[in-house]
Amino acid sequence: MRALRIAAVADIHLGEDIRGHYRKKLEGIEHRAEVLLVGGDLTRHGTIEEGQVVADELGDLPIPVVAVLGNHDYHSDADREIAAMLRDAGIIVLDDDAVVIPLDGTRLGVAGGKGFGGGFAGKCASEFGEPETKAFVRHTKDIAERWRHVLKNLDADHRVVLSHYSPVKDTLAGEPPEIYPFLGSYLLAEAADAEGADLIVHGHAHLGTEKGMTPGGIRVRNVALPVIGHSYVVYCLDGEGVH
């Protein structure tokens, strides 16, 4: 098994007003990385028109592209249509499932989806009280459960979790602590720690910090565009992997 170079970005928030700009930044990406992961908030308002811009900007790249949607991509209730448009453009869109991409003899497994909030251990919402509160917490629990199941069955040499919401507090540093429960949930990290992964990539927290780690020792990277300040970052996973 060999090392893999993985490009990652999130929160590109594309729209007609910046059409063409991001695509230019991806020129030559095939010389830097073997796959591009995009961690949600592909659009600003989640409209079909913006989805088309995303399909045009990320489609037909010389390397595979794996994406998840973010909260902005749900805003106009067109998330399914946007996901379908992206898939038509050849982009792999994860929705609490996984894909195994063969890359020159090495199998990269990517699992994940949008994720959701709820907060972090000791300071989080519980499934208690009003139905609205229960529904909020249940949504995250269901997602984490699906991730655990997907990861359990993911047979690959390297395993990466792709999310929009954050699994840890570390990568939120810089955001107001009061809004942490809306930025992520420890349940996402717990699922990954239980089944093992080499890396978790997320976005959502524009004021956050790039680097963090789960309680179980999985590296976490916040690749929101304003955080990384680059068109994308490249992580090189060495040849050992996690099982």
């Binding site: 830097r32 304003p226 300040g229 068109s231 994308y232 992580y235 996973l237 060495d238």
Partner: peptide, 13 residues
């Protein structure tokens, strides 16, 4: 305005 520069050096994990 968000200034986005070219990708930097890769990080080895």
């Amino acid at each position: 305005l968000l200034e986005v520069s070219d990708p930097g050096e890769e990080e080895h994990l």
